[in-house]
Design a protein around this nucleic acid. Structure first.
Length: 228
DNA sequence: ACATTAACGATGA
DNA sequence: TCATCGTTAATGT
């Protein structure tokens, strides 16, 4: 990973446009990049939250594992997204495990730099409020789809969430994500996810590939996510 | 009803 | 060769 790709990634991250030149330069110096293989652990649950993290390449998932070994995946994080600001703000240990779903590159901004931006940059603070608000809206919609929607709507919602423009502005149309992982993300079995995805494909929202999903019509996908 | 797990063969990378 | 996909059967709530 080169310094150029970090510069490109930061240029595509919307919050950097609100920074002064000096702030942007300081951020660039403070960030470290790390690579993870598919299946690799990015952060273990319960470890101190020392960084705010951005996904430069690949895709991560955030999940919890119960003592009995059952897992609950509650978020997928595609490339272009930043996450973990909640735990940085609260200064709490990571409340979830973070795992790379595909080979991934992650940018790490130390907590001290994040807090400095928050205190010194009014535009950054405003951007952060918008980010938290978009996340809240996403989970409000998730509860609604979970309570009222059929399984196809639930799968459509989980999938369309990865293409939420407010949260993930740069997600590519085609993402590398197995049906098993999407099932985990949607809270359904692989078999049910498979049927739902085929229905979404029949309705012209997506195209299925081997180990990948391509969104053909996001509007249709979002409409199906709201059905119920 | 409808979801889940288990199991199978087929197939793509 | 191995992961992933599509499908079916048995089982549970």
């Amino acid at each position: 990973m080169t310094a150029d790709s970090l510069a490109l990634f930061l240029a595509q991250s919307s919050w950097t446009s609100s920074l002064t030149t000096e702030e942007a330069a300081r951020v660039r110096r403070a960030i470290t990049l790390r690579s993870y293989p598919a299946g690799g652990a990015v952060f273990a649950k319960g470890t101190p939250t020392a960084h705010w993290a951005g996904v430069v390449e690949g895709m991560l998932k955030l999940d919890n594992i119960t003592a009995e070994g059952r897992t609950s995946t509650f978020a997928g994080v595609p490339s272009g997204a930043w996450f973990g600001e909640g735990s940085v703000l609260k200064d709490e240990p990571r409340p979830y495990a973070v795992t790379a779903l595909t080979d991934s590159v992650v940018a790490l901004l130390p907590r001290s730099e994040f807090l400095r931006l928050l205190h010194e940059s009014h535009p950054f603070a405003l951007w952060l409020i918008g980010q938290l608000n978009a996340r809240l809206a996403h989970y409000v919609a998730l509860v609604q789809s979970d309570r009222l929607g059929d399984t196809t709507a639930q799968v459509a919602h989980s999938l369309s969430g990865l293409f939420n423009d407010a949260l993930f502005p740069n997600t590519a149309r085609r993402i590398t994500l197995s049906q098993e992982e999407l099932g985990r993300l949607s809270g359904v079995s692989r078999q049910v996810a498979n049927r739902a995805l085929q229905e979404l494909q029949d309705r012209g929202a997506i195209r299925l590939g081997y180990g990948s999903i391509e969104v053909i019509d996001l509007k249709i996908l979002q409409a199906i996510a709201r059905e119920g």
